[in-house]
């Protein structure tokens, strides 16, 4: 359902008074819930809820040939399917531009942050590498799919174990996991900032997202206790002044510093899930 111009006007007027429909502050995130291991067949999986928005992500690993320009590095591929299940706005069929853009934003954020150590995913230089497939499925869209999807992808990677490999056939034995986790470094976190009217907000609900004029997504990771921006994507049809862009950069860094430690805490807590993953050894 497209929202009425009247609703947009009301949202902007509300934001001008620093108010939101759900009583949050302009830069306040909704409650974040992370659950690991939501699908047993996947090498890693997680579900992330931000408010009523829910996204699941799964990681599958396979053996593949390396790309010619990086013979000693593993690789990854991010795909998103915007299922009609999650919103009346989504239509069945192959991924369209919104799904493609979402996948590429998540891909670049993870790749550029160096979160996955691709060198350690090389099995035999120039011949065989591990390919990491990250597949993202929103289950319920109530705004801010970008940040939710990114967190779900990062969580699923943290959840993943290498599958067993048949050394002779050099093929994966699916259904059997080793105890070895993926080679990961400190996690990146993505924040998307929206400009609506004169206001700058975080974590929009659907109605706010549809009133958004421009958005800027930042993937930020820590390096020697400093915030490093690894990826940016501006979206939306409206342009931004340089002053606005600078303000958005400052907000992104400031909020990232505030939110990041609690996210790391939540993920670490979720990692200790009680229903232990079935690890078949030998």
């Amino acid at each position: 359902m497209e929202i009425a111009d009247l609703t947009k006007k009301r949202i902007i007027e509300y934001l001008d008074e620093k108010k939101r429909f759900d009583k949050r502050k302009l830069l306040e995130y909704r409650n974040i819930k992370i659950r690991f291991g939501i699908s047993k067949q996947a090498e890693g999986s997680a579900s992330v809820r931000i408010g009523k928005t829910e996204v699941v992500a799964g990681v599958k690993l396979d053996i593949a040939e390396p790309y010619t320009d990086s013979p000693d590095k593993g690789s990854m591929m991010v795909t998103t399917e915007l299922l009609p299940l999650a919103s009346e706005k989504f239509e069945a069929g192959p991924p369209r531009i919104n799904a493609i853009e979402l996948s590429r934003i998540v891909d670049r954020g993870i790749r550029e942050s160096g979160f996955i150590d691709f060198k350690k995913l090389c099995i035999k230089k120039g011949e065989k590498i591990w390919m990491v497939f990250i597949d993202i499925y929103p289950l319920n869209d109530d705004g801010n799919l970008i940040d939710t999807s990114f967190l779900a992808a990062v969580s699923a990677l943290r959840d993943a174990f290498f599958p067993k490999m048949d050394e002779k056939k050099e093929k994966v034995e699916y259904g059997k996991l080793t105890e070895k986790k993926l080679p990961l470094k400190e996690m990146p976190f993505m924040l998307t900032i929206h400009k609506i009217g004169k206001s700058i907000i975080l974590d929009p609900i659907t109605e706010e997202e549809e009133s958004s004029e421009a958005r800027v997504s930042f993937a930020i990771s820590p390096e020697k206790k400093e915030a490093i921006i690894n990826a940016i994507q501006k979206g939306g049809e409206k342009e931004l002044t340089k002053k606005e862009v600078f303000e958005i950069i400052d907000v992104a860094i400031g909020e990232w510093k505030r939110i990041y430690p609690t996210i790391v805490e939540k993920i670490t807590e979720a990692e200790k899930r009680p229903e232990e993953k079935i690890i078949q050894s030998g």
Partner: peptide, 16 residues
Amino acid sequence: LSGKISLLQLDGGIKA
């Protein structure tokens, strides 16, 4: 003319 920004993307690692 207006000095406004209509495309902004980034790949890599940079401080604000």
